[in-house]
């Protein structure tokens, strides 16, 4: 199940968000060796203070198994700042209809290979479907995602290949990072759904705020 959590509904889901920061610590600090700030077992940075939206996959046991962070490219975002090296010193793109996805990861310790509900491929697809449908409903037609080569291969294998890249891959910790472009379209969502066999609504409906 996908939860879209931002500063509007954060107070309803603070446990999920803490769990997400713990997952990000295990992935980006421990596994990928990125130069990220860790405190109390959680990885958070200043972009988390800019009211981003988080797309979070929670498994049947209530554990966070995948996540992605979204920011508008019209405002401050990672490619305009800390990831600018990927762009070879070029200015970042800026578009009302293009969002930036960063900190995209799944829990490779808890998830297995194959295509079952608890697989890396299923959760990756679920997060992507949730993010693309959220973007489309918001009038956003494109996304630029900062990913590592492993994630790039997973995307290519799951009917979700990027249609282009910005700049060139750059070393980041134990891996390289690249900026991949994807259209947020029915076509792409359908390809992912067909690959993963996901035909139900993946996203928890937005609640009315009290």
């Amino acid at each position: 199940m996908i939860f879209i959590i931002d500063s509007l509904n954060l107070h309803e889901h603070s446990d999920i968000v803490k769990d997400m920061f713990r997952l990000r610590k295990r992935v980006f600090a421990d596994r990928l060796g990125w130069d990220v700030q860790v405190s109390q077992g959680m990885e958070r940075d200043r972009f988390d203070e800019l009211d981003p939206a988080h797309v979070i996959s929670v498994d049947d046991e209530g554990r966070v198994v995948g996540c992605m962070r979204l920011l508008q490219t019209t405002g401050p975002h990672m490619l305009s700042d800390v990831f600018s090296s990927i762009l070879d010193g070029e200015p970042p793109l800026r578009s009302a209809t293009c969002w930036e996805a960063t900190r995209f990861c799944v829990d490779t310790e808890r998830l297995v290979s194959g295509r079952a509900r608890n697989s890396i491929s299923y959760v990756t697809s679920e997060v992507m479907i949730g993010a693309f449908e959220f973007a489309m409903a918001s009038g956003v037609s494109d996304a630029v995602a900062v990913i590592d080569p492993v994630m790039d291969r997973v995307l290519k294998r799951s009917g979700n290949a990027p249609h282009g890249y910005l700049g060139t891959p750059k070393p980041m910790g134990k891996v390289t990072a690249l900026a991949a472009l994807m259209d947020c379209s029915e076509d792409r969502v359908n390809r992912i759904r067909d690959f993963a066999g996901i035909y139900h609504d993946v996203t928890q409906p937005q609640t009315v705020m009290a």
Partner: peptide
């Protein structure tokens, strides 16, 4: 606080 358009229906109980 949102990155996405917000429908005022979400404020109904506010």
């Amino acid at each position: 606080l949102s990155i996405a358009p917000v429908d005022w229906a979400r404020f109904e109980r506010d």
